[in-house]
Design a protein around this nucleic acid. Structure first.
Lengths: 346, 346
DNA sequence: GTGAAAGCGCTAACAA
DNA sequence: TTGTTAGCGCTTTCAC
């Protein structure tokens, strides 16, 4: 790595002159500027970002902790974060807590050691289950701002970006009722997460409101409590059988809402295998996106969480928070509305 | 952020004493060490990583450029990289080139400005198509080591980690022939990428070797040349129709090999819809992993690329390269063998 | 128009 | 055992 000093030595000028010249300072003569900039270009000089960070006490880097990078939802959020970060010249450092509290703490500690200007965080499953947020309070007490998304807690006050989980399901039930569906099932692999609970609650409330009662037989819970990753149930070979049994047990079922982004696709496959006509005899709706929708036949109708947008907004919020000097900033919670989209399974 | 200086002031000792005490130097009396460490703990002091990086000219950070973070394969590679990085105390900064050459160049430039100790790179589609590698040469000329994975080029000499694309397909054909299959089709959405070409070539060679000829009617190409993302074809509604037509056009087809990790699943769905018995009348094999396999019924038999392992090995190679002082290091290319796994579609 | 010097937070050789 | 000093690469104030 070539440094200012080396440039200075080669041209017999001082370091400060070189610095000013490279910053196009008008203190420096045009001739000197050219001379210096030419050499810099020739030697492929690059400003040392680390030195700048130390000097300015600003790293132009955001830290991101997500529960699981293999979950497509979080990969999309990450993509949104990157989009927003790139536009504003920020880099991002990423950690995947793998749903572990200990890792989350470790990573937050690393991030608190000066490497980043702010933190974006979605809580790990273990953190939520153990209700332990001391490590996060710790960081909010420092000068480093934090924005939480998707997996949040009201125990911490900071900016937040979430989706309308409860309403998404509630409205989906409503919409299916409007289409004449009268026995709607609910499949979830995430009932132990806050988002999963909100979705379950939305279903429960809608059941009561539209059918006069909530029937727990109409709920299939795929969560494996001993696992600590929400993807794990899908590695379990029994999931096909569980869904098949669920459909067979409720023989006049005419709609299924899947609360995660995989069991919808699987449900379609199982129903097809059972020779159930979709959507004529059974409507299926799942969370997900366009790509996931393509993976089933007929294409799954999906509730789109707009994960990219969530990431983008969260990063934008964080960056504006970083740049705002005011101390009387009030925290906001933004809700990104879901939308139900296309597919032919509804 | 609390600093050494602040600790020193509070205790009326010098900065260097504090530094040494925090590093458990045996130059310092136990009493002082305790006093200092206690205060540090109490005030939640954290070593400033930026300052350390500048001092040591070592950031303990790896830079990663992948073509597309929304592609599950790369998300898994990333996961592997993180695993290896975490074990050795490295952080990672991630960029997604979104298959764009310009972005790839930008990101490499950022990475060349002192932020990372090494770079992990999978080339963007555009970079490969334009055959333009000057920006990478540029970085290899500096002292910063680079390891390429998956999307590589032989124009650059550095460590590389790839899979056995050609053999994977060749051997899969061989295996299907052994099972009695005599008319094998090949579906690819990535024929413009080097890995896609290798897979096509494997299929072509195997066709000649096992059937005496290569029949181009048995190849379905889903690549959309005007797009610059290998995922794009899947957002195209016609993909189902294309695959359906392909199956119908080749009416005694008894096996399909899908060269990417999505069209296998889709092919199963289409074939099921056409009432073709799988695997009795039609075997289907695709690239992918356990999770992808779960998404179809019957479960897709997959060629597993061991993406996590690729990431892990690439990161390990990079880190050992960073730590090796020797200049007469010879570059290696590691091939991570694929394995064919389970599923009931074969 | 150019240069010397201080300082961001830290470590380490050397001095006391 | 503790403190002083220099320096990592850079910017910026102040002097010349």
């Amino acid at each position: 790595m070539i440094t200012l000093k080396q440039l200075a030595n080669k041209l017999n000028v001082s370091v400060s002159t070189v610095s000013k010249a490279l910053n196009n300072s008008d203190e420096i003569s045009e001739e000197t500027i050219n001379k210096i900039q030419n050499l810099a270009k020739e030697l492929n000089y690059k400003r040392n970002k680390i030195a700048l960070s130390l000097k300015n006490n600003k790293t132009f880097t955001l830290g991101v902790i997500i529960p699981d990078i293999l979950n497509r939802f979080y990969a999309k959020v990450l993509h949104g974060i990157q989009k927003a970060a790139e536009e504003t010249g920020y880099d991002i450092i990423i950690y995947s807590s793998k749903e572990s509290l200990v890792k989350e703490i470790d990573y937050l500690n690393i991030l608190a050691s000066g490497t980043v200007d702010g933190v974006l965080l979605a809580l790990s499953e273990e953190t939520i289950n153990k209700n332990d947020f001391a490590h996060i309070k710790n960081i909010t007490l420092k000068d480093i701002p934090i924005v939480m998304f998707d997996r949040i807690t009201d125990k911490i006050s900071c900016d937040k970006v979430i989706i309308d989980d409860f309403d998404a399901i509630y409205n989906e039930v409503k919409s299916l009722v409007k289409l004449g569906r009268s026995k709607i099932g609910f499949i979830s692999s995430i009932s132990n997460l806050n988002v999963g609970k909100l979705r379950s609650n939305g279903f429960r409330k809608a059941s009561v409101d539209f059918f006069g009662k909530f029937d727990s037989n109409l709920v299939l819970n795929l969560t494996n409590q001993t696992n600590n990753s929400s993807m794990k149930p899908f590695y379990n070979a029994d999931i096909h059988k569980n869904i098949e049994q669920f459909i067979l047990n409720n023989n006049d079922l005419d709609a299924i809402i899947a609360a995660d982004n995989l069991s919808g696709v699987i449900s379609i496959n199982i129903a097809s295998k059972l020779n159930i006509k979709i959507p004529k005899d059974l409507s299926i709706v799942g969370f997900g996106d366009k790509l996931i929708s393509m993976l089933s036949y007929p294409k799954l109708t999906i509730i789109n969480q707009h994960a990219v947008q969530i990431g983008q907004r969260a990063a934008e919020l964080l960056i504006s928070r970083i740049n705002s000097k005011s101390t009387d900033y009030t925290f906001v919670t933004e809700i990104i509305p879901t939308t139900t989209e296309s597919g032919s399974s509804k």
